[in-house]
Design a binder for these strands. Sequence first.
DNA 1: AATATTACTTTACGCCCGTAAAATTTTATT
DNA 2: AATAAAATTTTACGGGCGTAAAGTAATATT
Lengths: 343, 343
Amino acid sequence: MSTPRIRNMEEFATVSGISRPTVSKYFNDPESVRQSTRARIEAALEQYNYTPNIYAMNQNRRLTKNIGIVVPYLADPFFAEIARQIETLVINAGYRPILLSSHGDPMLEIGNLDALRAIKPAGVLLAPLGRSSDREALAAFCADVPTINFDANIDGIGEAFVGHNNRQATDIILEYMIRTGEPPSFLEMRTPPNPNANKRRNAYIEAMNRNGLAPEVIQIEGEGWDLEEIGYRGGLGVLKGRSLPTDSILCSNDRLAIGFLAAAYECGFRVGRGRGNALRVAGHDNHPLARFTCPMLTTVSHDYAAIAQTSVNTLLSLVETETRPAKRESTLFDGTLILRDSA
Amino acid sequence: MSTPRIRNMEEFATVSGISRPTVSKYFNDPESVRQSTRARIEAALEQYNYTPNIYAMNQNRRLTKNIGIVVPYLADPFFAEIARQIETLVINAGYRPILLSSHGDPMLEIGNLDALRAIKPAGVLLAPLGRSSDREALAAFCADVPTINFDANIDGIGEAFVGHNNRQATDIILEYMIRTGEPPSFLEMRTPPNPNANKRRNAYIEAMNRNGLAPEVIQIEGEGWDLEEIGYRGGLGVLKGRSLPTDSILCSNDRLAIGFLAAAYECGFRVGRGRGNALRVAGHDNHPLARFTCPMLTTVSHDYAAIAQTSVNTLLSLVETETRPAKRESTLFDGTLILRDSA
DNA sequence: AATATTACTTTACGCCCGTAAAATTTTATT
DNA sequence: AATAAAATTTTACGGGCGTAAAGTAATATT
């Protein structure tokens, strides 16, 4: 009953009654062969369940179907979520995603790129660590492999940048907070790992000035990617020290805000936008868990879907045309205000 | 100045003054060649920066150095964290980890295994979806590839199981809760995706009976892996309906507890173990964000490090000896009580 | 129906490395 | 120093597929 096992493409070509080069052509692009031929191959495929040896395929091919995805910190649900969306798009486009996390470590980031180089990817989607990234090593990699830089912009890295419009996003949440209460202070890390933080701070300062208000930037200490912990400790510091200039806080990102909320809760500050609350707290990113904080976190959402879609489309069009754009373009997607209870 | 590029192992063998087969041997195991030979190869390596073509290497090798890691849902920080630890161990052992997430989808779980099959991994570490997994497809895969089943046990799948001691863990947190207040009800999903939930419920019921107490199991509705949302909605249901049999809740896992805490906050129930609190809530897993809930979540931690270490060691010893154990062993690691403020 | 176009087959070669067997050199043993 | 053991080299082959060139068959064009 069980049909004999097919060992290679030669044997498969024989049983399907098609020549091996044509079968090879089919596997590289099923649409590139005649409809009747395709049908015969696919009939044989159902019967024999053969798959080409991926190593032999990639050995001679100029371009593999591998697409690398590198994120700075996969244990952060924000990156897990965007990686998930990108993965799905890459698979649906007929490519094979290879997801790597740098775990916050610049050495590992380079290690990931080296590992990718070894598998000769057709292209890479790179969300770099940011400040701690080894810029030269990234540039060297991008010179060899078509790369799209997403999430955190590093000038000159990659063929294009796709990310979040930090300025617009900061403007809308700031406008909201100013309109509905005291103008907020801005809470951030003194040395943020991610360059988006700087963009947000600057946008905050400019918008406050534009409104004739005095910007108040609170910078808390801490290194690395354990952002909730840093937000928590920093929050305890300013709350216990009663050093807050206002009753409203705009955090540089949701993870800091989550930590800050924990500190506020512990110190007995009631957070919210209604009466009887001592503090308003807002974040930035629309982290997957921002809906479940106490109170639920008001924030600005990235347009996850658009960022994922555009990054993938841009890369695949480069890959498929085998060109590199003359100029590095930046595409920024506007954020959306997510009104919940914390501010 | 720049040395000519090395195109393949043949050329590299020439410039290093060693024969190609010996160089090949070196790359498969640097210790397998004479010390002096190794030094010459490594000197040449520094000068020429050659890496063997990974596709050509794997084409003829019986076993690759690829280790697959499959988790059910990577956007869950619990799995992200354990995947991170496993990845690190695999790299340090000289293998190449390939991390894949099933994103809660049984079809994708099978798809991931198929993708792994294509790259001929030396072994696989599999945390299955659980209830929704296609058991037969998993078994077929395990017959072909040495696999260790971790986190969620599926009988007969894999050469061994490594996981969390749900019984002991449930016992210790239950003992604590009974000793310090009202015996808790157990909150779970009616149809939990993960089999650990069933173990925990059964352990809860038995322990309650053993103590002469009446077990109270609250089953909330919901499908899939959006556990915070399910916990939140379920929490609203029981809290608004005032249908809680006790003032103490033991949640089946921390993600449900996070959602439940959000519901309790919204309903104005003060949660905690001190006086003046209406409710005690505890979880299970020690989720990375359990430290930052309001109040901080009392829970039982997995021994993440031991589970990761043992899974990897067990798999690599199978891989390296090229044997399969006569009997499928289960190794369970005890949980640790993490006392925080919520219970 | 004759021609042009497209798709396919045949033939042939190359990619880069693993691996086995036999011959040779190097190192260890006594 | 003679022998044994281990490491290396030489030689040779094969793996599974991409791809190019030239010839043949099928489809489209007029």
